[in-house]
Design a protein around this nucleic acid. Sequence first.
DNA 1: TACTTCGTTCAGTACAAACTGAACATAACA
DNA 2: TGTTATGTTCAGTTTGTACTGAACGAAGTA
Lengths: 163, 163
Amino acid sequence: MNNQSLDSVVYQFIEDAGNATKSLGMGRVLGQIFAYLYFSQDPISLADMQDTLGISKGSASMGVRQLEKWGAVKKVWVKGDRKDYYIANDWFGRILKNAVMDTLSEKMESYASSLGSAEKSLDDLADGNGREKFIRDRLKHLGDFHDRVRGLVKNPLVKALFK
Amino acid sequence: MNNQSLDSVVYQFIEDAGNATKSLGMGRVLGQIFAYLYFSQDPISLADMQDTLGISKGSASMGVRQLEKWGAVKKVWVKGDRKDYYIANDWFGRILKNAVMDTLSEKMESYASSLGSAEKSLDDLADGNGREKFIRDRLKHLGDFHDRVRGLVKNPLVKALFK
DNA sequence: TACTTCGTTCAGTACAAACTGAACATAACA
DNA sequence: TGTTATGTTCAGTTTGTACTGAACGAAGTA
């Protein structure tokens, strides 16, 4: 086996990972960068990423920062080189958790806010007619579900699954 | 309280729901349609959706079909009318589960396929040098995590949370 | 059978998100 | 201090996708 055929396996995987993150709505470069680092033994610089992945300076910089935020990659020091180097973290449970939290928790807040203001509006105009009661009931039911999903995060059983 | 102010509460919610589904990558109309049905006491036709939400015929048709696929809405019969009418289901746990499964399970298959073909390629060219071993190890670790996520779905504890 | 009403399809469009790259900021070095 | 090497930012461009609407099909009606 030679390094070239090993490379082709890795390149294929980089492409697949890019498609995966893209189809998950996270953009293609995130998957590409992470896969590249994940299969590299040595730390990788931003310039390496640009060259190997054929992406722009801006994409490499912003992509790697996003991954760092989620704990997916880590900056490392390479003696005698001014460049920033990165390696991949392989604690997937933690990475997934961070990414999901980061993208979902602010949305949950926003949903709570919508529910709250709807309830408040209803209270202001309450007269208890049929339609108002119906809407109030449905709002209540939706709020209960929202709370349940919210509570799910704190559930120790679920927490354990991300360890 | 009059119906107009009730309407404005509902309209606001429809807008919020549309933004929510949109930001989750499911398109705005899905949220709009579901919210409209969810707060309507009577069954709603496709024409109603077009009028109330200001969306096209095509969007109403395709949106409602998607929601039906996930069990979020149900077609109902209205005597003496040829139109199709729909009402919202309120079993959110089931709806969420169906939606997540529908959008994720095929992706999981695709990831498994990528992992599989990478492993196979490695086996074909195995010579046990350092880099190949490194890549093989990382691939193994990734595969283990994939299996763990896959198993998560069948976990009775998780299942219970979607009841 | 011709006409009307309704739902579906899909090529085209409009819009939003991802990516680019040049200008800028920062820090090391001579 | 000027020069070089590097990272960041963001206005502009590209790309992808959700939505539109006209054409079509199906099924009821007169």
